[in-house]
Computed example of a mutant assay.
Amino acid sequence: MSQRLVIFDVDGTLVDSQVSIIAAMTAAFGAEGLAVPARAAVLAIVGLSLDHAMLRLAPGAAADSRARLVEGYKAAYHAHRLEQGAAHSPLFPGTAEMLEDLAAQPGILIGVATGKSRRGLDALIEAHGLGRYFVTTQVADDHPSKPHPAMIEAALAETGVSAADAVMVGDTSYDMDMARAAGVAGLGVSWGYHAPEALKNARSVIDRIEDLPPALDRIWEKTA
């Protein structure tokens, strides 16, 4: 049996980090003396690298101001994580069990492709005890922002899995567009930060985490 790779987005897919994201964005914009973007606008950029996110949220700001927004967000998010621990980004219900079951299947590898920083992802993985599941972790520090396919391409290269045997699981249009650009199937989830109808490039969209294994089977049956 050839190996297969399931690549997960993090924020809005595995963890519900919106409270921390909104709080950090509020602090960053407040420190810069700028109007805080609406909650919907902030959640719409989750998944992008921070420089791309700030360009969308503050398009009229000077480059140095946007750079301060990025650093202010990082500092506020880090402080919130230190204060709250694992509670700052709780796992969606059923996530730990899903990862455990998926990792136990022969021939299945699990990875991550996220707009988080390496520091942020490592801290989250440690807080929730997820390190044993992921054989490849791709972060914003090392790649162009989603939807550029670089994260998925690197995950495929690291694991030796072909694009036909990989699936990208995520909650945003950026995840699904990245999957399409990399030539892998995209599996959308409806419980995250983009509306299901925005996931136009998804092969399918699931509403419950327990629906993920059969959805993966259906995708791979079509590519077998």
Results as ranks from 00 to 15, higher is better:
197 E>C: 06
121 L>S: 06
215 A>G: 09
141 D>S: 09
62 A>Q: 14
191 W>I: 09
90 P>D: 08
83 E>Q: 14
74 K>M: 07
179 A>K: 04
62 A>P: 00
80 H>R: 13
161 V>W: 11
31 A>R: 09
176 M>R: 13
67 A>R: 15
47 G>S: 05
123 A>W: 02
31 A>C: 07
16 D>A: 12
124 L>W: 02
224 A>Q: 13
72 G>M: 02
7 I>Q: 04
138 Q>E: 15
40 A>W: 04
5 L>N: 04
118 R>A: 13
126 E>F: 06
153 E>M: 08
179 A>D: 13
139 V>L: 00
164 A>R: 15
153 E>T: 03
59 P>Y: 09
127 A>D: 15
220 W>Y: 06
44 A>S: 12
182 A>E: 07
153 E>R: 13
18 Q>K: 14
198 A>T: 12
2 S>K: 14
160 G>D: 05
83 E>S: 11
128 H>Y: 07
122 D>G: 10
77 Y>A: 09
107 G>K: 01
97 E>S: 13
44 A>L: 10
6 V>T: 03
210 E>D: 14
3 Q>K: 14
27 A>L: 03
71 E>N: 03
191 W>N: 07
206 I>G: 12
31 A>L: 06
44 A>E: 12
182 A>K: 10
55 L>C: 05
181 A>C: 05
222 K>H: 13
177 D>W: 00
145 S>L: 08
55 L>I: 07
160 G>W: 04
118 R>H: 10
38 A>V: 02
143 H>I: 02
53 A>D: 05
105 Q>I: 02
213 P>V: 05
183 G>F: 10
151 M>A: 07
91 L>R: 01
47 G>L: 12
148 H>A: 14
55 L>K: 12
20 S>I: 01
200 K>D: 13
127 A>S: 15
166 A>Q: 13
68 R>H: 04
221 E>T: 14
11 D>S: 14
124 L>S: 04
84 Q>M: 09
96 A>N: 01
20 S>P: 01
199 L>F: 06
50 L>G: 07
108 I>C: 10
18 Q>W: 09
9 D>I: 07
125 I>C: 12
95 T>E: 05
85 G>L: 06
33 G>N: 04
4 R>Y: 04
162 S>R: 14
81 R>K: 11
218 R>T: 10
3 Q>Y: 02
10 V>H: 06
209 I>V: 14
